[in-house]
Design a protein around this nucleic acid. Structure first.
Lengths: 230, 230
DNA sequence: CATTTGTCTATACAACTGTATATTAATGAT
DNA sequence: ATCATTAATATACAGTTGTATAGACAAATG
């Protein structure tokens, strides 16, 4: 699908930024890598610009290549978008690893995990932002790529929840659902946080910590006493 | 911004469906309403097609009008998208009203609310789907429209949570955060449910009920005992 | 060295886009 | 009935789009 912008400066269809490459075209590039295209795409997407609105030609333009060279690495822009999501999976796994590392420091695990997550987000990981923002509209392949990363994150988190519960001799009710809830919440609230100024982030971190604690208390209480709330 | 599909049948950029109006153009329409355009847009968007990819001309085409007539009702497609979100707000308020009505029936409130929500979703409310699927990428005005509806929903839910807590003489910790958590979770899981076959919905409803119960137990326990979970 | 292969760019095509201007048709006022 | 106003359509323009084909260039091979 093509995208076309004839000068609109308002609306959800944002005018693509003009390529800023300073000089005239530099002639033939010696080699064009897949990473060139990924980097170019990342420059184009953002909170106001969905990957689903990217056009092949503007990615090529941003990368400083001829449009036809795009096909050396990707079949179409959807395939590039899916590659972005796959790469974002690495960032998610990095978050988990870092949270595990910090969990060993003896501080509050909920808080340190939330802070870890938010720090990584604030480090302007474009890839992370994409997987958080996108994923509910797009090709089936694209949505599945996002869903895969989400589920992978959930599963890792679930393993951690169970391990920690055993370590601390605490009960846990439905750990998989707990992991799902935490993942969905943290992703949704993390996404919202990205639209707010950084001085609002501590407040949001507090909110997230409180909510996650409610969930933890709830799961422990329900496991221990079988309480059913209405 | 323009969207153009030159025959791609894969990828997140889906080929716009050909207008199916059977006959030749019927000449001048006596009157064109805003609703005509909204209806046309709703026909074009879906799980694989974001509002951010709509072009003015394809909406006009779908509505059977000349492109220039679009400007009689909307400044641009973003304004149309925001109108969709505003209308979706009505559907959300309808859900809350229905949930309140059913809450009076004496059944489990969590379950009946979740079932109400899912029934309304399954009734193929295109508008609802949009507000659930979109909202994290787009123009600032668009995202704010979505956020407004989310917050409105949260506030109504918060009022209900407090009222029910008092009615049942139960404590509640941080009702606003509870409402936020519930809203975010239900919306995220509702969105995911829409991508699954209907025979999976009961299972998903069970999951949602369990998660919401955990949150309720957590908030009540924390209010009652000041427990802090890690 | 010449030739072949691989890679990148240029050109072309047919289609689309948003929006401006001109034209046409319908409605309301006189 | 005529005329003015409003609303819808037609036409035009300049730009974009994905992709096909041709051309140019660099590296590898014999």
């Amino acid at each position: 699908m093509m995208r076309y912008d004839s000068g609109m400066t308002t609306g959800i269809k944002i005018r693509p930024p003009s390529p800023r490459r300073g000089q005239a075209p530099q002639g033939r590039k010696p080699v064009i890598t897949r990473e060139d295209l990924i980097t170019a795409a990342l420059k184009l997407v953002g909170p106001n610009r969905s990957v689903s609105t990217l056009s092949l030609r503007e990615v090529a333009r941003e990368a400083g290549i001829a449009p036809n060279s795009f096909y050396r690495h990707f079949r179409d822009v959807d395939e590039l978008a899916i590659a972005l999501i796959d790469q974002a999976g690495r960032s998610l796994r990095k978050i988990i690893g870092e949270a595990r590392y910090r969990a060993a420091s003896g501080r509050s695990i909920v808080r340190s995990s939330v802070e870890t997550f938010m720090e990584q987000l604030s480090a302007d990981e474009k890839l992370l932002h994409i997987v958080l923002r996108e994923g509910t509209v797009g090709s089936e392949a694209f949505k599945q790529a996002v869903e895969r990363e989400l589920h992978s994150f959930e599963e890792e988190l679930c393993v951690d929840l169970i391990r920690l519960a055993e370590l601390n001799k605490l009960p846990i009710y439905e750990p998989q659902l707990v992991a799902k809830a935490i993942t969905r919440l943290v992703f949704a609230m993390g996404t919202a946080a990205m639209d707010l100024p950084p001085d609002r982030h501590p407040e949001l971190i507090e909110d997230m910590v409180k909510i996650l604690r409610m969930i933890m208390v709830g799961t422990q209480t329900m496991a221990r006493e079988g309480i059913v709330a209405d």
